[in-house]
Amino acid sequence: MKDYIEERVIKTAEYIVENGATVRAAAKVFGTSKSTTHKDLIERLPHINRELSAQVNHILAVNKAERHIRGGQATCLKYQQQRLLHKV
């Protein structure tokens, strides 16, 4: 594997562990696609650093379990903002 890919994978994984970030948020920070970020974390990271991979997998599992809640919160906020705009 190329050195710059390994470096990107490790930096992305460390960012997710430090911030509890989602794949989407990490992809945005590092300027990669969600697909590339996910592949880095799921396929490449276990070959580079197993311990870091376990930490990332735990955070990704938590994020996956909470995503329906975040989606509901985003929808609620959207409609609250729409109501405020129509009252004015």
Rank of each mutant, 00 (worst) to 15 (best):
F30K: 02
R83I: 13
I48L: 14
T32A: 01
K11E: 03
C76V: 10
H58K: 12
S33K: 01
N49E: 11
I59Q: 09
V17E: 12
D3I: 10
A74N: 11
V9P: 12
E43P: 10
T75Y: 10
V23C: 05
A61Q: 08
T12V: 08
Q55M: 15
V9Q: 08
A65Q: 10
H86T: 12
R24K: 10
H38N: 14
R83M: 13
L85T: 12
Q82P: 01
A25S: 06
K64N: 07
L52E: 11
A21C: 01
H86N: 14
V17M: 08
K78M: 10
K39R: 15
G72P: 04
I69K: 05
T12Q: 06
A74C: 01
Q73I: 01
Q81M: 13
E14Y: 06
G71S: 07
K28P: 01
T36N: 11
I69G: 01
R50W: 08
R8G: 00
V62N: 05
A13E: 02
T12C: 06
G72N: 04
L60W: 11
K28G: 00
L45G: 15
K2T: 09
I10G: 10
I16C: 07
A27M: 00
E51R: 15
K39E: 12
C76N: 11
D3T: 11
L41R: 14
R44D: 14
K34D: 09
E51K: 15
A27I: 00
N57I: 05
E6W: 08
A74Y: 09
S53I: 04
K39V: 08
I59A: 07
R44H: 15
N57E: 12
K28L: 01
L84T: 07
A74M: 06
E43G: 08
G31K: 00
T37E: 03
T36L: 09
A13R: 09
H68A: 02
N63E: 05
T22A: 03
A61I: 04
I69E: 06
K39A: 10
V62Y: 05
P46D: 10
V88G: 15
R70K: 04
L41W: 08
N19C: 02
G20P: 02
E18S: 07
N19Q: 06
L41I: 13
C76E: 15
A21I: 03
G20L: 02
N49I: 05
N19I: 01
L85I: 12
V62G: 03
Q81D: 07
E7Y: 13
K64I: 02
A54Y: 08
L60I: 10
Q82K: 15
I69Q: 05
Q81P: 04
S33L: 04
E18K: 14
V9S: 05
K28F: 01
M1D: 13
Q55T: 08
I16Q: 09
